[in-house]
Design a protein around this nucleic acid. Structure first.
Length: 348
DNA sequence: CAATCGTGGTT
DNA sequence: TAACCAAGATT
């Protein structure tokens, strides 16, 4: 499959010069034209946070991280534990571990200076095809195709792509590559802004679109028909128990999850396995256990239903965890799931 | 390479 | 309100 007609980059850049979003990690096009260059550390940090995550959700985390750790040396020197705590709630926690490992690699192996090519950047932990291209284009104007979810949608519509994106990824990349102008960084950000604000998933404001003249989906009449979706797998249900233990002072017993896998390295309250059939109740210790309710939490690939139990216990026979003061819970590396569990047990 | 890996905003 | 989906990486 060969895709015709490259994107009209001058039209896209002219649109971007007027309508670029103002974001904390971004250098505005006017400033960029004046020679101001983005800080690769801030661009990298924002790009990692933005992986599969909305701009709205990222903003405050970005400001917090850059306030705590203004440069890559600060972040590399921070304890992993504190990075996980600050990442709590943002999801996809492998990103936080890779973020920390990447900062240390940049400091140890590159003297604190990020590599300046997409190929060099892609050797870093947590930096894949998209993120390496985005940093190289935005910071160094490397003429590389920056292909994210927004671009998948914009290009699928522009070319009225007759197959799901996954089956034509390389054709899209080639078509985009052939369109990249010398202002590669502004072009990449412009195309993403276009996807986020004009060519949105369920609404296409084609009258405002700078590349509407070449858009094949618009010619067909219904751009939101694209991209074509592959059949979706249904989401299985898993069930389990969560045991919230309090001591006489009202402190809460927490423990760390295994470093790999779901919610890896984050904190939790003890609980059962999660299975398609609710496991038998097995309290961690003898006490007057009470059922406090149920928490439902939806992950990407399954739905979880946890029965929440709580009790005041005599703190013995427990191993490997720690007692957290209730007013210190806010600072623990607790994923949203276990914050819901604690709330269900009456601990806010 | 298909499965795994979170969460909150939006419709 | 349930479904959709977001500036993807890793194995």
């Amino acid at each position: 499959m060969h895709l015709p007609a490259p994107i009209d980059a001058p039209a896209v850049l002219a649109w971007y010069d007027r309508h670029a979003r103002d974001l904390p990690w971004r250098v505005a096009p006017a400033d960029r034209a004046r020679g101001i260059r983005p800080d690769p550390y801030r661009v990298w940090l924002s790009e990692v946070m933005l992986q599969q995550t909305t701009v709205a959700a990222v903003k405050n985390y970005f400001l917090r991280f850059t306030s705590l750790w203004p440069d890559v040396f600060d972040l590399a020197a921070a304890p992993l534990d504190s990075v996980l705590k600050e990442w709590a709630g943002l999801g996809y926690y492998a990103r936080a571990r890779n973020l920390h490992a990447c900062a240390q690699a940049v400091v140890r192996e590159h003297g604190g200076v990020f590599p300046q090519t997409s190929a060099g950047l892609q050797t870093l932990p947590g930096v894949g095809a998209y993120t390496s291209a985005a940093i190289a284009a935005i910071c160094f104007d490397e003429r590389v195709a920056v292909l994210d979810g927004n671009l998948d949608r914009v290009l699928a519509r522009y070319y009225a792509l007759p197959v799901p994106v996954r089956e034509a990824k390389e054709e899209l990349r080639a078509a985009l590559q052939a369109s990249v102008p010398s202002r590669a960084g502004d072009f990449a950000q412009a195309m993403m802004d276009l996807g986020a604000t004009i060519c949105a998933p369920r609404m296409a404001a084609c009258m405002l679109c700078p590349i509407q003249p070449g858009c094949l989906a618009t010619k067909e009449g219904d751009p939101t028909r694209y991209p074509l979706k592959p059949a979706k797998a249904e989401r299985p249900v898993r069930k389990g128990h969560a045991y919230v233990m309090l001591d006489a002072d009202g402190d809460v017993y927490l423990q760390s999850r295994p470093e790999k896998g779901l919610l890896g390295g984050m904190s939790e309250v003890p609980g059962s396995d999660w299975a398609s059939v609710l496991p038998d109740v097995a309290y961690p210790t003898e006490a007057d256990w009470r059922h406090r309710g149920q928490v439902v939490h939806v992950f990407t690939h399954f739905r979880l239903e946890l029965e929440v139990w709580s009790a005041t216990v005599i703190p013995d026979g427990l191993d490997g965890g720690w007692w957290a003061e209730r007013r210190a819970l806010k600072g623990e590396a607790l994923p949203t799931l276990f914050r819901k569990v604690l709330a269900e047990a009456g601990l806010d």
